[in-house]
Design a protein around this nucleic acid. Sequence first.
RNA 1: GGGCCAGUAGCUCAGGUGGUAGAGCAGCGGCCUUUUAAGCCGUUGGUCGGAGGUUCGAUUCCUCCCUGGCUCACCA
Length: 499
Amino acid sequence: MEELNQLILQRREKLLKLQEMGINPYPYEFSRTHSSADILADFEKLQEKEVAVAGRIMSNRLMGKAAFFHIQDMPGKIQIYLKKDEVGEKTFEVYKLLDMGDIVGVNGKVFKTHTGEITIYCQKLELLSKSLRPLPIVKEKVEEGKKIVYDPFSDKELRYRQRYVDLLVNPEVREVFIKRTRIISAMRQFLNQYDFLEVQTPILQPLYGGAAARPFVTHHNALDMKLYLRIADELYLKRLIVGGFDGVYEFGNDFRNEGIDRFHNPEFTQMELYVAYKDYHWMMEFTEQLISRAAQEVLKTTRIKYQGQEIDLAPPWRRLPLFEGIKKFTGRDLAGLDENKLRREAENLGVSVEDSWGGGKIIDEIFGEFVESKLIQPTFITDYPLEMSPLAKKHRQNPQLVERFEPIIAGKEIGNAFSELNDPIDQRERFEGQMELRAKGDEEAQVLDEDFIRALEHGMPPTAGLGIGIDRLVMLLTDSPSIRDVIFFPHMRPEQSNL
RNA sequence: GGGCCAGUAGCUCAGGUGGUAGAGCAGCGGCCUUUUAAGCCGUUGGUCGGAGGUUCGAUUCCUCCCUGGCUCACCA
């Protein structure tokens, strides 16, 4: 055990004193009648009425025999006025043993102070939970309608590691996560209107697939077998389309064993959707509806600002075939070039390529370098090279391409979709192509899944599929610069110091 | 993995061309019964991220390491 510092010791002493006074510092329940927001919103009706509120003490101003403090509950804060004459000697003594961060219940009457702040005139004060650690003290002042914050709790490492503290003292963080939930709800609601079925598929998988990525590996003791954490839901959801569901979707976490940065967390959330009898053209229209409506629902507008860039999510979004995009931004037409020629083009453009890369990878690299970051307004990049997309159906006009699109917004892809490959013979060949890449050392090439092919052999209807990176979408809609700002507990290296 | 930056009190930060540190807020003690970044007086609190080196002496200089941020690479 670490030596307790002074502040913690003082709080423990207060805890003991309270217990000696017969106070249970951790009682079992408290009946609330209102939230802080209810009272602020309904002051006219509630004035002079008795209310019961509960929350955490977030400010404290003791003035001899009276005191003001704010308590914070989920929607916000409300001020409490406590007077010794009103609550009596003992309660006032209890109050003096409370600290910032303690959770209390207050019964009292609603009134307005001389300075006009809606306040509860405390008649009964009850300790609901004693806090033993000091909270960062953030003070704020409102001046000319603007909120000035003093000493904000701003150390990013501490904020990510101790999100509970971050959430308590930085209200805008809470707002981001509430929006995150609302965005997902709005999407779900939209999907359900189409009678798509929300499902759950395995996270622990004997074979992983559906994306190009390295997996996390784990072990099942009883079966003594290797299991992988899924990198995508795709192959299982398509089995469900084979099984006769016309539309299925899943919100779930995928796990990819890769580096961590502003756009990548090893564990992230995806929504995948598969719809029978539709193709990628239909899916593009669906996607722009899905995203723009979620924005409309949650933000009440489709015009958003992301890191200073004005973006309009209202449909229709631009459609731009991949090769046209490259041509537009580099002046080079790469369509139909073989691998050697592509390699030369890459060199001319100053893009470094590795020997092991195939043509598709080189094209992707050039696209990433010259095109992607320029696409600020929502754009569907369509029609990718065949070898980059082993699960997508060949383009109906050009067998070198597949019917695939990625929605790109603010220079980042937020999803991936195709007309799904449902020809089992073609699918087997594509998997075999992947296995060859794997043999050449491409660790991200996909693995042959015999059972998936067996499923396709039973017949899968023409199907359109879509994956949306929920974290990136939330970043976009909440103007968050880092994926860590939209994941409650982003992955961090273990901390070394004692707690 | 490379580059740049950062790590000093619970929080936000100063400081030091080497003599073991300061402020504000919080805390503690006192005054104060409508305050609001409450105020006034007093005051506690730190292995200056870690280890090693140079030195009479290191928080400061050097080396290595840890953690984080940004960025490039890798990667959807």
